[in-house]
Simulated assay, not measured.
Amino acid sequence: MQRTSFSDMRCPVARSLERVGEWWSILILRDAFLGITRFDDLQASLGIAPNMLTRRLRALVEAGMLERRRYSDKPPRYEYVLTPRGRDFRPVLVALMAWGNRQFAVEGEAMQLIDEITGEVVEPVMVDAKTGVPIDRSRHTLHAGPAADERTRARVETYAQHRALQRAASDTSSP
């Protein structure tokens, strides 16, 4: 079965998934953030088949998330290091970790984000870079951007209508 490509969609979520939407890709990026960059080490960490790891690494290099660097000539060996685009994925991984800890870690948190100055566990939140205000559903809403196509505009309009109905319902239910 042929996989659908999202590369031509004007949706930033779809285009992001085109690059990292396969679970092995996200786990490879997680390991690269942890400093695991060599093929054999990635394979051991992930328990992934070599042919699958080769395909995922090639795709991440082609997407500009990782750079393939030679670290040994005899035999030729490579490591896969994060590019600036790959490093920019860190907040997504931190958000996935925090969400996973809140929603699925019934046995307790297996990974935590720690403030290296205070030593305290950090609970990440998304904030507006300009104001520092936490992103909140009641204050912030999605709108179609200048490059949105008709599908995206229709999707966002449906979202706006849904939010308006929710607000109207909550206004009539409050005393």
Rank of each mutant, 00 (worst) to 15 (best):
D40F: 03
F6R: 02
D149G: 11
R102L: 12
A110H: 11
S5W: 06
V127M: 14
R69A: 07
L57R: 00
M1K: 09
A14E: 04
L34D: 14
S138R: 14
D171M: 09
T83S: 07
L34T: 02
S25Q: 08
R137C: 09
A144G: 11
T158L: 08
A98L: 04
F89L: 05
A14Q: 03
R70V: 05
T172W: 03
A144E: 10
F6E: 02
V127L: 14
R56H: 13
L96E: 12
Y78I: 00
Y71I: 09
G21T: 06
D149F: 04
V61P: 00
N51L: 10
S174V: 10
A44W: 03
R87I: 03
Q166C: 05
D88C: 04
R30A: 06
R153H: 11
G47Y: 05
D8Y: 10
D31P: 01
R139T: 14
V61D: 00
R58I: 02
M126P: 01
S72N: 13
L17E: 09
T118C: 09
L165K: 13
P12K: 03
A63K: 01
W24V: 07
A148I: 04
E109A: 13
D128M: 15
R77G: 13
S25V: 03
W99H: 15
L57V: 02
Q166A: 07
R139C: 08
S170L: 13
G47K: 07
L60S: 00
E62S: 09
P146I: 09
V61L: 01
D88P: 02
A98Y: 12
L42S: 00
W23T: 11
T131L: 12
T152H: 08
N51I: 09
A59T: 05
E79G: 10
M52F: 04
S25K: 07
L46A: 03
L66V: 00
T158C: 06
T4W: 12
A168H: 08
V94L: 15
E22C: 08
S5C: 04
E79Q: 11
P134M: 06
R167L: 12
M126Q: 08
E62N: 05
A154E: 15
M97N: 07
G108I: 10
F6Q: 02
S5H: 06
V133C: 06
L42E: 01
H162K: 08
L142I: 14
T172S: 12
A110C: 09
M65G: 00
E150D: 15
T131Q: 09
D40E: 14
T118Y: 07
L113T: 02
P124R: 09
T4I: 10
D115L: 10
R68G: 01
